[in-house]
């Protein structure tokens, strides 16, 4: 993965594959401490203790299409490479929370990448899911929520071509801190 926005897309896709109806993404940048926190939380099917233990093992996957599962292990590696942290909490039937901490001044810190494009891809691919993106930079905070966009669309589906400019507008506003 070239940048963090691609890691985010990958891990959020896991949430959606786990039948989540709500995904909350929190991106927190602290310029004084030179840290970046990325948290992905869902209300999907969750994992039992045994599965959770193996979740970051690249040779473990629950998918039937292939025998390796690199997504979480790559994200954990990207965080650890900067001297940061990676943790995952999950309960069957309740959901999963993936938390990462990166040190932005470490030379192995990957660029943030195109977060708006990742959010748009998630919205278009899963318009039925409520996506909430919380962006914090030091003491400022903005929120993008698909619920808010839906309310303005008057019944027009989120993935209809006519809705795309409005979604992008809301995403860009949320990224503008």
């Amino acid at each position: 993965m070239e940048d963090l926005s691609l890691h985010l897309l990958d891990v959020a896709e896991n949430s959606l594959a786990a039948q989540a109806t709500r995904v909350i993404i929190t991106l927190e940048i602290n310029t004084a401490n030179k840290t970046l926190r990325l948290i992905i939380e869902d209300n999907g099917q969750g994992m039992d203790k045994q599965t959770l233990k193996k979740a970051v093992d690249p040779f473990f996957t629950t998918k039937k299409t292939r025998r390796i599962g690199l997504g979480l292990s790559l994200l954990a590696q990207a965080a650890h490479a900067t001297g940061g942290q990676f943790s995952i909490e999950s309960k069957p039937g309740q959901g999963t929370k993936v938390s990462t901490l990166f040190y932005t001044d470490h030379w192995d810190f990957k660029p943030l990448g195109d977060i708006p494009q990742t959010l748009l891809t998630l919205v278009l691919g899963h318009p039925e899911v409520e996506l909430i993106f919380i962006y914090r930079r030091d003491d400022k905070e903005t929120i993008f929520s698909t619920k808010e966009v839906k309310a303005k669309l008057n019944g027009l589906p989120l993935n209809s071509p006519a809705a795309i400019p409005l979604i992008m507008n809301h995403i860009n506003k949320a990224m503008n801190l």
Partner: peptide, 9 residues
């Protein structure tokens, strides 16, 4: 569009 880890990478 297929968006597994492999596809995204």
């Amino acid at each position: 569009v297929h968006m597994g880890t492999c596809g995204i990478a």
